[in-house]
Amino acid sequence: DTWRYAFEEAMEEVQGKYAQKFKEEVEANSDHEVQLFPFGTLGESADIMEQAQSGILQFVDQSPGFTGALIPEAQVFFVPYLLPADQDQLVSFFRNSKAIHELFPPLYAEQGLELLTMFPEGEVMMTTTEAVASPEDLNEVKFRVMTNPLLVESYKAFGATPTPLPWGEVYGALQTGIIQGQENPAFFIESTKMYEVTDHLTRAGHNNFTTAVMANKEFFDGLSDEDKTVIQNATAAAFDYIIEYQTGLTEESVEKIQAAKPEMTVTTLTEEQRAPFKATAEAVEAKFLEIGGSQAQAILDQMKADLAAAAGG
């Protein structure tokens, strides 16, 4: 059969790399063909998600931030300083988390989706027109964020003026000065050229961009055990591949940015500098519990337990 798989990024970005590996694995181990549809070719994030729900697409990659409109609990990934900055701990968490492997799947199933995996895409960094070392530096800074209540809350807590803007207008708005900052993983800042219109890159370590791959549930449940195994193996192989691929990707992207624009400053905030940012996390957590749906508390508690385990192991 031909299986169709859509994702939110371009072919050579992280989600695209994952999808290419998944396709390769499925096609090598079965007679099925996987067609890939990158960002925008079948609509925006919400559109491809609906198409996966209605069964037009067999697979979709959507980040929990967007899924939050459908499954409010998924927004937990926007609580700042929840995920560890340490890469090994992060990987261990994604591999073993009970929240991801046991609590989230039933929530996705309610929406007609089989949650296959979640994986990190890289540390989220800020790029701004003025240097940032403390929340005071974000004062009055109009900062573009995705329209998500928790991100808005986070940047309000950081002291910025969170400003929603459609993605297509961000580059122009940074260039003319309507906004003075935005945040994204390093590879995305590099590929979308956000560094061309900002001067300072700041690593506050507040988050790691997470994404999720799912299948249409009816399609998945209707598969033979053999096909299910093919998909599960491909999912696992692509997960290993993407973790490997990301080793050094962040640093590589930062180096590319500096090579393309030597005057760009790159600042990693010290623990001391991060403290006032971290202090705001509690307010965002409270907001998450308020809008995160009926399972919010259970998910948050389990996440914290999983993270403690990852830090200990």
Binding site: E12, T192, K193
Partner: peptide, 10 residues
């Protein structure tokens, strides 16, 4: 185009 092809938008 710049985003899809990885070309400098400036």
């Amino acid at each position: 185009y710049g985003v899809v092809s990885g070309t400098s938008i400036s």
